[in-house]
Design a protein around this nucleic acid. Structure first.
Lengths: 353, 353
DNA sequence: GCGGCAAATGACAGCGCCGTCAAAGGCTTT
DNA sequence: AAAGCCTTTGACGGCGCTGTCATTTGCCGC
């Protein structure tokens, strides 16, 4: 029995290049150890019912051959469910999104699940393509910071059993769970504080109109202004999606005939732009930015602080905790992460009027 | 033959919830369309040799059943090679790493390859575990910002055919390609400029000693100081891994009997801490930070700017361009990304001495 | 001394898909 | 009309692994 003249596994592959290059399979390990595939499988997976002696034989063979289990084949044979969840954001270099990703990644630790990341660049079509792609790859779930305005098309994906969780921006036309920042409350607090400091012309620098978060923030801004009987139409600019755009729009606003005495920057990108614009403006301009950022304290910038890391964690936890039942019943729950107005000076400059 | 009393596939799964929940297989689609599996496969994969008529039948069936190809099974059958490459960094919330990730992600676009991300938290053991894990998942390649000091153990992974590319920090004890910043040159330029502005006591705030990047920067710092005949031993502090640590160490340094008149912050974390420390210091302290950051212009901080996005892109491109030959022959090439000293004021404050 | 049980192992049939090859038909060529 | 070629289709055998079930062996109790 032990003298079978078969080629030894080591030399069985003539086409091999210089270095090994061939990853052995379980079958080869089993053969080398003189056991059945199933037994080898048991050893590799640490299952019961294997003698210590057999285990050693298999481990020895596996070690010598440099065996590495093939996770794909294993997953296929078991019953699937991939080991990754996907996160699609607008742009990873935006620290807000990076913080969300950090939160998700932290929460995933030790769960044998990994994070696959992609950014849409706030491009509708790319977002949809990415979702399709991840669905195809059988992501366990898709976490989505969406740019798209209507999500009804995603229902087919939910039906395939892949939960979609909305981060930062709630779904429209679709029932799905979401985790968002308290946009209204945060904005209102900021605007009301500026008003309480005597400002009557308060500029608003916002992102793309179509982005839902900004619709909400803008709504809260106009509401607060109206409630105080103030005009806002000549002080609001939007579609400032990056610091540069925000800067030039803010400059224009400040250079107008009747310039605002305070600015509200509706997200961290806008805040950066406004800071640049305000920096070398002749008279001091009050400024409050939505989203906190690292050097805000050094710069003395008052911000509507929120916790994107917590947002990411909460969303990831949701996905991890929810059994596979979620796919059948997306409750459409919304979790709101609170905001805090962090006063550091720039938002407490009284009106010069 | 056709009357086998087997359960119909549709109802074969009693445990199923309310909504479908069952993802049909190619076999079911083929049966529904009345063709063989292979033909259905051809249609799904857009291969040649299928009549328009047949194609339509299959597509119709696939559509009605809600077919979604199983990427895992497909990959297994073909011959593997996963569709993802992995990036392991220290901490995604560090904008430097986030920028690297952005670069990688950008370069991957349109290549049908995705980015799987994980952070080691600068923890040796976790880093190794992640590498093992990704290797097991058959990542096409592993991009690594390593915390570990010795990489000789990773050779087994290379031999498995999974290329490991080192980002920001070069490998030691292992032959592998790497992409790094010009740490020496950047540091030297900064220190020399400070010296040229009359500073003789120049503080150094650095990260963990074990991190290779910082060994290099520290080496360049000491070399530049020695070359100018200056003492550095009482001005160098290290192991400041986050802004808070950097801040308190910088404060200590500035509060000492013979405080430095200039500081060199060896990375962006340290720069943030130094900025805080310098902000409310009684006399002005010159400051140059390694790594550029977004608000450096607003704050007027002179930095050794580099381009982490380009670094990420270059690494990703390398992986994409290199055929599968790389696994047999890791050249051990090192690509150095240059730095630029961006003067914004803080580094051009002359010594008060 | 025999039933009965748990431990230990292996044969076998797929998971869902794709590559190979053979077969069938239609067309052109000589 | 025979030969040759291309298109279209399907049967079949895996990819590397795991679940199920059967088989073998050792050991207990009565």
């Amino acid at each position: 029995m032990t003298v079978a003249p078969m080629a030894t596994p080591t030399e069985a592959r003539p086409p091999g290049g210089p270095a090994g290059g061939h990853v052995p399979t379980l079958a080869e390990v089993a053969r080398a150890a003189g056991v059945s595939m199933k037994t080898a499988s048991r050893v590799i997976n640490g299952e019961r019912y294997v003698t210590a002696e057999t285990r050693d034989k298999v481990l020895k063979a596996a070690g010598e051959l440099g065996f590495v289990p093939n996770a794909l084949a294993s997953a296929l044979a078991r019953g699937m469910t991939s080991h990754s969840i996907s996160l699609i954001t607008g742009d990873l270099s935006n620290p807000f999104y990076a913080a969300i990703a950090t939160g998700v990644e932290n929460e995933l630790r030790g769960h044998d699940i990994h994070l696959t990341l992609a950014s849409s660049g706030e491009d509708d079509r790319r977002e949809v393509a990415l979702i399709e792609e991840f669905a195809l790859r059988r992501s366990r779930a898709i976490l989505l910071v969406s740019t798209v305005e209507d999500h009804s098309g995603l229902e087919t994906i939910q039906r395939r059993g892949i939960p979609i969780v909305f981060l930062d921006r709630a779904p429209s036309g679709l029932v799905a769970d979401s985790f968002v920042i308290d946009n209204s409350g945060g904005t209102r607090a900021a605007i009301e504080q500026l008003i309480s400091f005597g400002h009557r012309r308060i500029g608003y620098i916002g992102d793309y109109k179509r982005i839902q978060t900004h619709q909400t923030r803008f709504g809260a801004y106009t509401a607060a202004m109206l409630a105080a009987g103030l005009d806002w139409e000549s002080f609001a600019v939007r579609d400032a999606h990056n610091p540069d755009a925000a800067e030039s729009l803010a400059r224009e606003l400040l250079a107008s005939a009747d310039p605002p005495t305070a600015l509200f920057a509706a997200n961290n990108r806008a805040t950066v732009g406004c800071l640049r614009a305000v920096k070398d403006h002749r008279c001091p301009v009050a400024l409050i930015g939505f989203d906190d950022f690292e050097l805000a304290d050094v710069l003395g910038v008052t911000t509507v602080a929120n916790d994107p890391v917590a947002l990411g964690r909460a969303a990831a936890r949701k996905v991890l905790d929810t059994p596979v039942a979620a796919l059948a019943a997306p409750t459409g729950s919304t979790t709101v992460i609170p905001t805090t107005l962090v006063r550091r000076g720039s938002g407490e400059i009284p009106s010069a009027d």
